[in-house]
Write a protein that binds this DNA or RNA. Structure first.
Lengths: 137, 137
DNA sequence: ACCCTTTATGCGGTTATCGTCATAACAGTC
DNA sequence: GACTGTTATGACGATAACCGCATAAAGGGT
């Protein structure tokens, strides 16, 4: 087989950076992350910026299921579910395995849970602070 | 003063849930997070789904600065920066303090760094796995 | 008062994304 | 082969987001 150029190794189409670029995240004073890295971050967060996709991730976290089960659970249309799963799959947030004519989807990564936990903690803190402010007024 | 209804305490306009709703994040088998919570998660992630906003957060993390400095650092237009900062402010990701006619913006939360660290780890793992696959082929 | 500087906002064009319908592609059965 | 059931995809309208231009609003100086 042809060994493709390593520079073009990418899981996300726009991911064209060498591995060494991933050693810093947000950077510290004076070292801004590259525009490419910011672009990848934003693309990843964009996947989580749609309630439908988050809901699909939650459903699949409860256990693998096929599209028919997802339709039953969410009420979304078949084509809509297929498209959203396709986006999530390209980021390796879900994967599928064929069982005859059906496709069983699953999502076992802890990443989304961890991200949501962090955000949830922030949301709680904001509300608690707001409550404090009201009670002291 | 009038004590507003606690049910309507909200920092984000769409945040209308009681505090108790924030005790679970993604839920486990059988307990799906409420649509409202998913909506709030997605709105938060949407803030990070734009490279311009991430870049502003990175700049402000290096230290407080006013809009003129942000224009110099990013090349964005003044109105664009003002709008993005407004969105970030509503989620408490940045805050501002007036110094005469200027407005000094700052962002000291570790939340965005933590989120980006998690995502960056994932991106690294994906690339390393891809490399392994190529080298073994 | 006027003027200048800095920031916020209404408006509009452009672009991207969502969600549906119809249909193609695929795997299996008869 | 034809037929059925399941999933992926092209086309399209609707909606939302981005981004800049122009302008309003707010604060300070003369």
């Amino acid at each position: 087989m042809d060994i493709p150029e390593l520079a073009s190794v990418q899981l996300v189409p726009q991911c064209i950076m060498p591995l060494s670029s991933y050693t810093t995240t947000m950077g510290v004073a004076g070292s801004m992350p590259s525009p490419q890295l910011l672009e990848e971050y934003s693309q990843f967060f964009r996947l989580l910026s749609e309630p439908a996709r988050l809901q699909l991730l939650c459903q699949l976290k409860a256990g693998p299921m096929d599209v028919a089960a997802l339709i039953e659970a969410t009420g979304f249309s078949q084509s809509h579910i297929s498209r959203q799963l396709g986006q999530l799959q390209r980021a390796d947030l879900v994967r599928c395995e064929r069982d005859g004519v059906r496709t069983i989807w699953s999502a076992d990564s802890e990443l989304v849970d961890d991200l949501c936990n962090l955000v949830q903690t922030r949301l709680r803190q904001r509300l608690e602070a707001q409550l404090q402010q009201l009670q002291s007024a």
